[in-house]
Write a protein that binds this DNA or RNA. Structure first.
Lengths: 229, 229
DNA sequence: TAGATTGTTAATCGATTAACAATC
DNA sequence: TAGATTGTTAATCGATTAACAATC
């Protein structure tokens, strides 16, 4: 067995997004002491197709055994490696409302290498309180914090109107990756990576498809009535 | 001017996800009393390409004027129509922790037609409290609630281990669209629409790309050292 | 009319899926 | 060896982008 890890080929974003899902399923299987899994079962548990599972995994390397499947523990460790487990990922979280607090308290946060470096908020009644043992600092001090390590991830969980200024400040102290929860399109320099999660957008997407379904039903009804038996 | 609305062609999901972004930009332009906008500017403000904007909008209908652009108010109203504004979207939210509370308190929630129908939680210290004027009910009563309207959207914001049971109960009372925040793959009948938002997945995706960048830098450094001037 | 900008077509790119030879 | 299942190829599907004719 030699050189099973894939040469670091480009891994498509669509695949990267599924890796944490496989990771979760595998860790459940590991907890249940299942030794091996085949693509069909992993696919079923992850809610995707088996061909996609094999394709995704093959991009990381050749970790399965033909005729048998994948060793659960080994595959898990390889996905962890690809996702940078073991690495330290400092987070700077701005906006310690319900959303910011939810994020900081996420399950399995620290086991995945995420470590809260600093918390900021604009609200004087929040500043000074402790979340997960860390004191919330006034947001005005964000710009004055010591330059951060390049692997640091910034989290913007402020109201929309504060988000751009906070983002600029994060970029100013050296943050190169930002997760934005504010309902606001952010401008960042091209070298800064940005992901946007918007609760209300997700609901709007769901309601769009509900609406289409409803219109479909209405149309069916009309056809039904127009073409009586 | 006749028949400007597109025949209800299939609108790709990728486009649907961008509609709320255009919507937000347009409502800002409207607030700033800008009368018209062209695809180039809308693209710039939404952080996408101009061709994509025109393509997306053309799927909804032919709402622009060649040589001039789009009327801000009219385009906004058309996007609203496509997204089902004016429609009533009842929500059943299960899990009133920080995340559930953040969602229920989202800005512009009610203006978009979302209306919280019922709140449930398993924690006795949360049950009975009021969020946005609505009393939190014990989760055991979820299964016994009156069957819901087919446009109802369920929100699962519980810990992972409770998520599947809660989902089954939601489906049981007639919910056909679910937004899942629990770090858990859910099984639903094929007719139920499901979207999954996972805070920790988002961070893992960001850290994956950070890692690749780091490895890239390391490689560059190595090449630099291997090929001295 | 001249200039500007849409709406659409065609070309490109990327992701998904099916099929199957390789191989345990 | 026979059966099972991977890893990969090729076909398909869908989304993005560029280009430009249509038209205000």
């Amino acid at each position: 067995m030699r050189d099973r890890a894939a040469p670091s080929r480009r891994i498509p974003e669509a695949t990267v997004v599924r890796l944490p899902i496989y990771r979760r399923v595998l860790s459940e299987l590991l907890a249940a002491e299942q030794a091996t899994v085949h693509s069909e079962q992993l696919a079923e548990l992850a809610g995707v197709g088996a061909a996609k599972v094999r394709k995704d995994l093959s991009l990381l390397g050749s970790f399965g055994t033909r005729g048998t499947g994948y060793d659960v523990g080994f595959l898990l460790s390889q996905i962890d490696r690809a996702l940078g487990a073991g690495h330290d990922w400092p987070l700077v979280v701005v906006g310690i409302g319900h959303l910011g607090t939810a994020l900081v308290n996420s399950e399995g946060f620290s086991t995945r290498g995420f470590r809260v470096l600093a918390l900021f908020d604009a609200d004087p009644s929040v500043v000074g309180t402790e979340v997960r043992g860390l004191r919330v600092q006034p947001v005005e001090q964000l710009g004055a914090m010591a330059p951060v390590d390049p692997s640091t991830i910034g989290v913007v969980a402020t109201p929309a109107q504060a988000a751009q200024a906070v983002t600029d400040a994060l970029v100013g102290v050296g943050v190169t990756a930002i997760l934005n929860f504010a309902p606001q399109v952010l401008r960042v320099p091209p070298e800064v990576m940005l992901r946007h999660v918007d609760l209300s957008t997700e609901l709007q997407v769901l309601s769009f498809f509900q609406l289409r379904r409803e219109r479909g039903r209405a149309l069916e009804g009309a056809l039904e009535r127009a073409r009586p038996q």
